[in-house]
Amino acid sequence: MAWSVAAETDSMRLNMTAGVTDVSQRVYDLHMTILYICVAIGIVVFGVMFWAILHHRKSKGAVAASFHESTKVEILWTLIPFVILILMAIPATQTLLAMEDTTESDITVQITGSQWKWHYRYFDEDVEFYSLLATTRAQIANERDKRDNYLLEVNRPLVLPIGKKVRFLITSQDVIHSWWVPDFAVKKDANPGFINEAWTRIDKPGVYRGQCAELCGKDHGFMPIVVIAKSQDEYQQWLQATKTAQRAAYEEEQRLLAMEMSMDELMSLGEQVYGTRCAMCHQINGEGIPGAFPALAGQGVSIDPARKLEHISLVVHGRSGTAMQAFGPQLSLKELAAVITYERNAWGNNTGESVQAAEVQAVMDGKAL
């Protein structure tokens, strides 16, 4: 299925989308050219076959001829397909070379896939962020009032300018993912330990949607991509606003280190963070999935007062060789403190312990263990 601005309101397409880039248009044109060639071949082959069946049938007194190989016929039916394949290969090769030419780019964005989110980092700009499915599990479970794109919405879309060549450096943090936006004719695997390149130049502003196109785990279907293409002026305004917001967030975290949040505030925020980041594995009730994801309710580091720092470290740094990711780079100090506090006090755990931003920072700096 192809998603585009028009596809958000139109019915499902029966053909490829022409896209909004020069490369996507070339891919579409190539697809249609080869389709027409195949249709023409089919018409000729089946036309000759049906003509032979009708005009050389037994009821018309046709007698089967007896003959052996013809060198001329052998050469002819070998040469014709060869010429057709060459005619198809020339535009296909030209299109493929254009798709792989990432030179002379204006902007470079590093894309890192992980279970189950995307991380975007703009080279030469102090801007990076994670992009996750914006629809909550409760909304997904609700059978009524679903929006058309409820599984194709993210909290932070990738924003790009139109008319600029954008190079993508695509990799993965854990398993193989695939960054796919049909309107750009970009579909590139994100392999852990490797960097693949792709590029695009968007012709017109709009919202363009895609998905991870590689089966990457239990929540593979909840890993959408949203790209918003803006004019150059609007893009610069967004870039500046994002830089300002990120600097403000950093300054807020520094102030937070000297403060203590109340238990009610920590639990309220922690429940929100847990629902969007942790519930997909450990379940909304903290019971986990036996054999896959450990339970947090009534057992483990979540209830042991002596393992509080271990709990913080596990959330911040993750656990190598497991699906437990490092959330230190993904969440703010406030969110980390809140979600750990929530895990230690929800579902009847009731340790009565709160975790503050300063404690999280100490673990990040390696001063607490």
Results as ranks from 00 to 15, higher is better:
L309R: 11
I312N: 00
L314E: 09
R344D: 07
I340T: 12
E343Q: 15
A337R: 14
A346R: 10
I340F: 03
L331A: 09
Q330P: 00
A323K: 14
M324L: 05
I340V: 10
F327C: 07
L331N: 08
K308A: 07
S313P: 00
Q330R: 15
L331Q: 09
E343V: 14
A323C: 02
I340S: 05
K334R: 15
P329R: 12
R344P: 06
H311V: 00
V315D: 02
E335R: 14
E310V: 02
T322W: 00
R319W: 03
K308S: 04
F327I: 07
A338N: 10
N345T: 06
L331C: 04
S320E: 15
N345M: 08
A326I: 10
V315S: 01
I340C: 00
G321R: 02
I312T: 04
V316K: 06
G328C: 12
G328A: 05
F327N: 13
P329Y: 04
R344Y: 12
K334F: 07
E310W: 03
L314S: 09
R307D: 09
E335S: 14
A326G: 05
P329W: 06
V316G: 03
K334Q: 15
N345G: 12
L314N: 12
A338D: 08
I340W: 02
M324R: 00
A337K: 14
L331M: 09
H311L: 05
E310C: 04
T322H: 05
P329A: 11
A337C: 07
L331T: 10
Q330N: 13
E343S: 14
